[in-house]
């Protein structure tokens, strides 16, 4: 099997430098800090015996870690992919690639694959930290698999977005900023648009139905995340509110869940971005 040379080169050079170990250390350090502060805030660090142990806290710790991992994903992926093409342009290596018969699709897919591989590395490295919550029980392995599947497809969309902007803008920093703006629009912007809509047209009198939530939030990663953690979230916690915003009703039984819709959007949007990125690279002036 032939490995995409872009993937081979990028993986080699990424792992060779000091940046990869530093990124992994910072990532894990941040997650450790989150879990430490969480247990500290819930008075679970200095307990002795089972009397003061609250299993709900352990399950919520899983949700907290999962949520912060998603936030890190939203934050890190644009940095990993924002320079995918623009850095080639900045160091004058892009022309040397484009004057070959190597397909621009392979260039784009290679860059996205590398970003997903880097995200996978971070997620895998975080497994021992996630494993802490398994000591307390209440979280099943299927919850973890679904969560990782959600992360990977979300990373595909975020990576495609970063590469797309990287083909448009000459400077890496501009493509990173544009990626953040788009992610901001997808996550917080869609909630704001929905809130404004219900404020002006409904005066917040009725609770939005599931199909209405889908109409506004299908592109929002937090909307998808809400049903990924629905089995581990309790109605009274902050994650319960996220579940409600993803289902309309906490107890509702929905077949096509919000994560399926959101990931469906991610796949289609990624395909469009990959197509546009490859076209833009191929297009000679």
């Amino acid at each position: 099997m032939k490995i995409n040379p872009v993937v081979e080169k990028e993986l080699k050079t990424t792992m060779r430098g000091w940046r990869a170990p530093l990124l992994i250390s910072l990532y894990l350090g941040f997650l450790l800090l989150v879990i430490y502060l969480y247990f500290l805030a819930n008075d679970q660090l200095y307990t002795h015996g089972l009397q003061s142990f609250n299993p709900r806290v352990a399950i919520n710790a899983f949700n907290t870690l999962a949520f912060f991992q998603l936030l890190l994903l939203l934050f890190i992926t644009p940095i990993l992919t924002g320079g995918a093409i623009s850095s080639e342009r900045e160091r004058q290596t892009l022309d040397l690639l484009l004057c070959t018969s190597f397909s621009t699709y392979k260039v784009v897919l290679g860059k996205i694959f590398v970003s997903i591989a880097n995200i996978l590395l971070l997620i895998t490295a975080s497994l021992p930290i996630m494993g802490i919550v398994f000591m307390f029980g209440g979280v099943e392995i299927s919850n973890l698999i679904l969560l990782f599947f959600f992360y990977i497809i979300t990373a595909l969309m975020l990576g495609s977005l970063g590469v797309f902007y990287s083909t448009i803008f000459k400077k890496t920093i501009v493509s990173i900023v544009m990626s953040y703006l788009t992610i901001g629009l997808l996550t917080f912007g869609t909630y704001i648009i929905m809130a404004l809509f219900y404020f002006f047209f409904d005066g917040f009198r009725t609770e939005p139905k599931y199909h209405e939530l889908v109409a506004f939030l299908f592109a929002n990663p937090l909307f998808g995340f809400g049903t990924v953690i629905e089995e581990t979230a309790s109605n009274s916690s902050v994650f319960g509110a996220l579940v409600i915003l993803s289902k309309g009703d906490f107890a509702a039984k929905i077949i096509i869940k919000s994560w399926m819709i959101n990931l469906g959007f991610d796949v289609l949007f990624s395909a469009l971005l990959i197509f546009l990125s490859a076209r833009r690279l191929k297009h000679v002036k």
């Binding site: 032939k2 490995i3 040379p5 081979e8 080169k9 080699k12 050079t13 060779r16 430098g17 160091r91 004058q92 290596t93 022309d95 040397l96 690639l97 070959t100 018969s101 190597f102």
Partner: peptide, 22 residues
């Protein structure tokens, strides 16, 4: 005017472009 991948060794640089050309 052209750039090179500074973080590659000389044979790795050649290997990359050999891969690009299939």
């Amino acid at each position: 005017f052209f750039g090179v991948y500074d973080d590659l060794k000389v044979p790795e640089y050649m290997d990359f472009y050999a891969g690009v050309y299939g």
